[in-house]
Design a protein around this nucleic acid. Sequence first.
DNA 1: GTCTATATATAGATAGAC
DNA 2: GTCTATCTATATATAGAC
Lengths: 189, 189
Amino acid sequence: MKSESRKEEIIRAASILFKEKGYSAVTMRDLAKAMGIKAASLYNHIDSKQEILSTIIIELAEEFTTGMNQIVNSKVDAIKKLENIIDLHIDVTLRNSDGLASLNNDWMHLEEKNLQYFEKMRQEYEENFRAIVKNGVDREEIKPFNIEIMVFSTLSTLRTLYLWYPKQKNIDAEILKHDMISVLLKGMV
Amino acid sequence: MKSESRKEEIIRAASILFKEKGYSAVTMRDLAKAMGIKAASLYNHIDSKQEILSTIIIELAEEFTTGMNQIVNSKVDAIKKLENIIDLHIDVTLRNSDGLASLNNDWMHLEEKNLQYFEKMRQEYEENFRAIVKNGVDREEIKPFNIEIMVFSTLSTLRTLYLWYPKQKNIDAEILKHDMISVLLKGMV
DNA sequence: GTCTATATATAGATAGAC
DNA sequence: GTCTATCTATATATAGAC
């Protein structure tokens, strides 16, 4: 029987180290040191270094997938859907900005099965995002700029929030949401 | 005596591998295989794996620094300066999108001296960017949104171009520049 | 749940022949 | 300029004592 709570501590510590140096550059000894134990002791709680990475990434990817599916199925206009997507990214970033570093930079180190699962989720996320923008352009809610550029510029900003937001001391989440919506959408609308 | 041209080939091959898996996950044997030689042979052209990384990153960082300094010292309004910064990023991305992966994701693996040099250049770049936006807001050329959010959202998009642009088959550089300026700036102006 | 000791693999880098 | 052979360090992971 594995202690879930200890495992979660390890995953949290690993997320921080992976954010600082990347998955490949962090050793099990580094992680053990951060936990105040020896490397061998880690294996009483986790099966492998790979398991830590996949737990971090897959959990977050599933959060985004669930959130996006709810937004896609909601009966609101395209602008409101984009606002809800911005909210989703800010909420996830506030809850686990360290883990998002692995999702963004170390997904390619996932093993075969999880790699495929992750790539499928990421592709579907992007396609849902693109479809919302397209629909908004068709219904003349969004300006007819190049759709790929609008999708890319918005997503790239949302995906990089994990690097920026933790350094902002004086921005409340609600104010951030409001201002981010202005900056990201006012150019399109 | 080292053959510069062979060294450049190695650096180009390394940039591609570093982009795919990150600096730490690429071995000298991987790099040698990509070059069609043995790992030991690489050392006839380069001193260390670290030298490859620092060559890639410092060269690019200096390009951005030089470009930004020219823009800062030019006598044009804030909007035109931002347009020129967008051009700069697109030009550098077109010339060396692979190397930009290392600059963005592996700078923390630079050794002390180069790490400090890089971080200084990056900080000055951001400060120049912020000053241009601030000046534009003061002169009422740019809307008075939150400055940090405008700086972050624009820079995050420009910094991620290296991932996106190589996948776009049908976008000409001049059209990209024009549309990117629209999407990034129309929300601010 | 953590430890010491260790198995096994692989990393960056060098020596010296061709 | 490239090779084979190899040094030395360090990686992930396991076995078994406490």
